[in-house]
Structure formats: C-alpha cells, structure tokens
Design a protein around this nucleic acid. Sequence first.
DNA 1: TCTTCATGTAACATTGTTGATTACATGAAA
DNA 2: TTTCATGTAATCAACAATGTTACATGAAGA
Lengths: 169, 169
Amino acid sequence: MKRFGRLSVALHVLLHMAEQPDHALTSEQMARCAGTHPVVIRRSFAGLREAGIVSSVKGHGGGWRLGRAPKEITLADIQAALHESVVTLGQPDPAASCLVERAVDEALAGTMQEAERVLHARLARITLADLAAKVGPQMTAYLASLPSSSASSSSSSTLPPKGKPPHAL
Amino acid sequence: MKRFGRLSVALHVLLHMAEQPDHALTSEQMARCAGTHPVVIRRSFAGLREAGIVSSVKGHGGGWRLGRAPKEITLADIQAALHESVVTLGQPDPAASCLVERAVDEALAGTMQEAERVLHARLARITLADLAAKVGPQMTAYLASLPSSSASSSSSSTLPPKGKPPHAL
DNA sequence: TCTTCATGTAACATTGTTGATTACATGAAA
DNA sequence: TTTCATGTAATCAACAATGTTACATGAAGA
C-alpha cells in the first residue's frame, strides 16, 4: 500500500475551500496553505477536477472552488480522484513460473483486497462536511482567542501570526 | 501503506524451507529460489531470526532452517519480524501548527489504524502450514506430470527445466 | 593449524518513485 | 494588449529499496 501524502494535502486544501465557498482560491494560495508548490497542487487537483469535486477557471480572477457541497464529497471520492490506489502489491502474476510464488501472491492479494475494501468503506463514510464540522469549532474557538482579526477574506489568515512563511495554514 | 515486497519474498523462501525441514538452506540457494541476492536474503532474514522464526548457523555445512513448526508461524509474525510496517502515514504530528492539518491527520490516522488492524488480524489467521497445504497438492501434481525426477534432495529442483537460471523456483 | 564454506555487516551503486522547480502555452478579464 | 492564472511537459533533487562488493567472523574438515 501507499502513503496518504496526496490525500492529506488535498484534504487540507479542500477544507479551506469549504470554509470559504464564496470565492475561488489560486493554486498559489493553496500551495502556501499546504506547504507545497503551486504546480504540485495543480497536478493533484487535475484529478479532482475531472471527478467534479472541484472546478477551476483560468485567467484573471480565476482559481479553484468546490464543485459540489462538502457533504456530497467523501474521502473515498477524493482518494479515487487522486488516482491514489491504496494497494501497491499488484495482482498475482498469472505468468509466474513458480507454483510457490503464485500461491503466495494469491494469498497476499486476497488479503490486501480485503484490507482495501475495509479502508474504502470507511473512507466512503466520511465526508468533507464531517471533517469541517470537526475543525470548525476548534477554529472559531481559536479565532475568538485572538486579540483582533480580519479573518474571512484575505488570502491566508487563520494561522498563528508567527507561523513560518512557507507553511501558513 | 507499503508494498509487500519483502513479505512475499520471505514467504516464498519459507515455504521452500517448510518443504524440506530436514536440511538447512544456504542464503545462496534461498536467493536463487527467490530471484534475488544472497545478501538481501541475509538482511531480511536477520529479522526473522531475531523473532525465532528461523535459525541460522555459520560455517561449513551451515545455513538456515525453520525455528518452529510451520503451523506455529503466522503471516503476521513474519511481517512483524521483517519490520515491515504496513502503515506508512505516520502518527498525526502533535506539533502541527495548523488546526486543519491536525484534524486531517487524526482522521486519517484513525482510518489507517483500523485498516491495519483488519490486515493484521487476517494475516494472523494464516499460518505457513496453511500456505504449504495450498501449494503441496499443486506441487505433487506438477511433479507427477513430469517424465522423471530426482525431486527431493538436490538444491533447486522443482521448476520446469528450462526456467531462467536467475529465478529457479 | 590451515583451508574452505557460510553467515554477519558495512559500504557503495543502482533503480524507481515522489515531490519540487522551471518553462512555456492557453485562456480570460481588465 | 497587458496581466493574471491555469494546464502541462520536462527536468531536478530527495529518498527509499534493492543489488552488489568487500571483508570480518565463526565453524567444520583436511
């Protein structure tokens, strides 16, 4: 199986988008908030766009926004759209010349598939809205604890002020 | 998560060892049967030795053999002994400065842990003996289909004769 | 004791994959 | 027509896993 690198980055960004459905984010902003590079964002999010999870518009004033309501987006959707297959062990090689090898591959493949099914089922049960609901209260509590803020419209605003420049929320 | 590369190689070799409990195999023989390098075998199997799954003796006439009965060795044992953690996404970073990041990490970590539990439970239910039982019949049937054979004692013998040298059973 | 065989490891090379970066074409608004 | 932003290819760098070489250690046999 693979790590969840892309999935966590995408989720991070998507949650920010869910909080501000009113205006589009540029890949520049998204990259800053995820601590990565704009091109990396555009690459990953190309898959999400194809899946209708987000939409993007080019040109002046363009950017990215959610393609449908957060409660209609499951983590399984996102993972699939990222083309991030969980299982890395391929199918058992039917051309394997060794009987032992074939038997081993089959046994492991079956096991992996079950694990993948479990994982997928669980990811399918969590929506972006669920995560946002989990984050929201913490976020507002945090914002309330700040002296003053112009919170909702500037590019990246919801972080402790002294956060290192490359990784701002 | 990670691929099962080491696990399948180890299983492959262990099954061969289970078939011939009477005499030790050299890492040279094991490597040939798994299509890899002796040093790679010794590296991987160091973990198995620490776990008591196999034992090794140095020097003239030395080699490797199973440390206990195949039915006492589960795939979960083997995987653990290989230090091959299934989950690659680490724990959620408790020092993450971003609330969103933390929430995402926690949600994913929980999901991954469940998947890992499922995987482990299933691997723990399969023993080396189970796999051997699955392979055995096919193997004897295959051997029976051969014209003649001196099957059980030479170094590597259970493959179609024309199998490429580097990967012999 | 000396040779031979085999493990135990460290060190290094190779390979494959992922993410970062640069560069440039395309499209849309001002 | 200038500016901003996406879309995408190509290239680089970082990293992990594996393959390989080299050598020390230990055990059996001559």
